[in-house]
Design a protein around this nucleic acid. Structure first.
Length: 468
RNA sequence: GGCCCCAUCGUCUAACGGUUAGGACAUCAGAUUCUCAAUCUGGCAAUCCGGGUUCGAUUCCCGGUGGGGUCACCA
């Protein structure tokens, strides 16, 4: 693409960041990195009523957690003098005005429009005599709009247009002296030299209003790149905070890898196209392959199963040392006295069946703690007689005492036992699995016992005999 | 309600007028000397409806339907 790509991601500090926002951030970031451009994190904090304590930090923490690094940071509220200057310019040109209509009255106008089943347009209600001199910080400044049909081009949606009925006299600078998003994003984008605006679907309908402002300001607008919304799982609603949209940090806390999450999000609304069926991407591959042409038009449903499948791939792509490092916070309490080497071996056994790291405790607990078995649980195997079970366990112990406990050797001995007792793996292996792990689900037996070690394995086998 | 956007298997999507409509997730079988997973093989499964344009429409146009968005001194 072009050389001097400058793009921005603009969350507002109103709470946890959900995946819809991060998806937008990811696309912006990928585009910047791909084009050796500049990625600006600009916090839209001009609504002080909605801002929450620590909101800015949450945004920074979240982006850091998913490794979207920014080249420049800005707080929009600190740029209010610039916004004021631009507002002043419009005011002097007669393209903006202040009025003294009270919020309550505006609310009445709105109700009136609603009763008439018409869209509420401020310009239909404001009258000349209500206009007053603009006093910055005391009253608000509104655009004197120029209602007409606007046509524009969107990099994803193509040619779009909307008629004059969508144009209105919106507030540019609020009575508190801070600009509205509608105004200051335009000023800041222009001032920062933004080349592409990535944003979601819901901004299409306000774009004509923005075009009106660009025109009044006599400046060009960046290229528009519209992203389709992400819909809530199972639902047809746009994914929002109230629809159970999860805080992105929660995914990380559940042990979804950053690579997995970004891979998943990238594929929600983008694909390499051209018959390219690749599903699993590293971050570097995403940077390389990403393209605006590959961005889809229609909304995508968020699908947990797919996220887990993708994440499983990324888990398996890690070598054991990397994965072990990532797994640090996920081990069960019972493992605290175990060595790193032992835990690494355990991890190696479960790596390929892990979808996210929070599953580690349930899959590994028996490696660290002796099973507390009841007799019925031990014998809960089809057609298994107690006496035969006892015989099998005794025989298993005798064999394994002579083993060097490599998985291969254990497997050989297990096979011998099958022949010797004329039984099936479904019975013998299930019995041993019960005795050794107390778990219904484990990695393959021989490997499990090998990692567990000779001493521990034999002890557990003996303990289970004493139950019978 | 006005305006705007969107529409292919249950889900994510490919096919930029000509394909037996492809892939993936999920699901269902089978294989892998045992469970679970991974892997492999196979099955099920879609062009919202109606009109055009065209020799030919998933693809282009119009209308409907459905879904989403928007109409704040929120972003």
């Amino acid at each position: 693409m072009s050389e001097n790509v400058i793009v921005r991601f603009c969350p507002s500090p109103t709470g946890p960041i959900h995946i819809g926002s991060v998806r937008t951030g990811l696309f912006v970031w990928l585009f910047a990195r791909q084009n050796d451009g500049r990625f600006i994190l600009r916090i839209e904090d001009t609504d002080k009523k909605r801002e929450i304590e620590g909101g800015v930090q949450i945004i920074k923490d979240t982006l850091e957690a998913v490794r979207l690094d920014w080249d420049e940071f800005a707080l929009q509220s600190e740029r209010k003098d610039l916004h004021r200057q631009y507002g002043q310019k419009l005011y002097e040109k007669g393209l903006a005005y202040a009025d003294d209509v009270a919020p309550e009255e505006v609310e009445q106008w709105r109700m009136d429009a609603q009763t008439k089943e018409k869209p509420f347009l401020y310009r239909d209600y404001i009258t000349e005599d209500r206009i007053v001199p603009w006093e910055y910080g005391k009253n608000s400044l509104r655009l004197k709009s120029n209602p007409k049909t606007y046509n524009w081009h969107d990099e994803v949606r193509g040619d779009l247009s909307a008629g004059p009925e969508t144009i209105d006299d919106l507030v540019l600078i609020k009575a508190d002296g801070l600009a509205t998003y509608n105004f200051c994003h335009i000023v800041d984008d222009h001032d920062m030299g933004i080349t592409h605006i990535f944003r979601a679907d819901e901004f299409i309908s306000s774009t004509p209003k923005y075009l009106n402002i660009y025109e009044a300001l006599e400046i060009d607008h960046p290229k528009f790149v519209t992203l389709a919304p992400i819909m809530a799982e199972n639902g047809k609603k746009k994914l929002g905070k109230r629809d159970g949209a999860k805080d992105v940090l929660e995914y990380i806390q559940d042990g979804i890898l950053v690579e997995g999450l970004l891979n998943f999000l990238a594929l929600l609304g983008w694909n390499p196209g051209k018959g390219n069926n690749q599903e699993i991407f590293t971050v570097d591959e995403l940077i390389k392959e990403f393209s605006i042409e590959g961005i889809g038009r229609s909304g995508a449903n968020y699908d947990t199963k797919r996220l887990e499948w993708i994440n499983g791939h990324h888990i398996r792509m890690k070598n054991i040392d990397e994965l072990y490092e990532l797994s640090e916070k996920f081990w069960p309490e019972t493992s605290k006295n175990s060595t790193d080497d032992y835990k690494k071996e355990v991890l190696g056994l479960i790596q390929e069946r892990l979808k996210f790291l929070k599953e580690i405790p349930e899959l590994t607990n028996f490696f660290f703690e002796e099973p507390k078995l009841k007799k019925e649980e031990l014998l809960n195997i089809k057609n298994l007689e107690q006496d035969f079970a006892k015989e099998l366990l005794k025989s298993t112990i005798e064999e394994l005492e002579r083993s060097d406990f490599t998985p291969e050797d254990i497997q050989t001995m297990l096979n011998n036992l099958l022949v010797k007792h004329e039984t099936k793996p479904g019975i013998l292996f299930a019995l041993i699995r019960n005795a050794v792990s107390g778990a219904k689900v484990t990695p393959p037996l021989a490997e499990t016992m090998s990692v567990l070690g000779k001493k521990s394995t034999l002890l557990r086998l003996k303990n289970s005999i004493s139950l019978l």
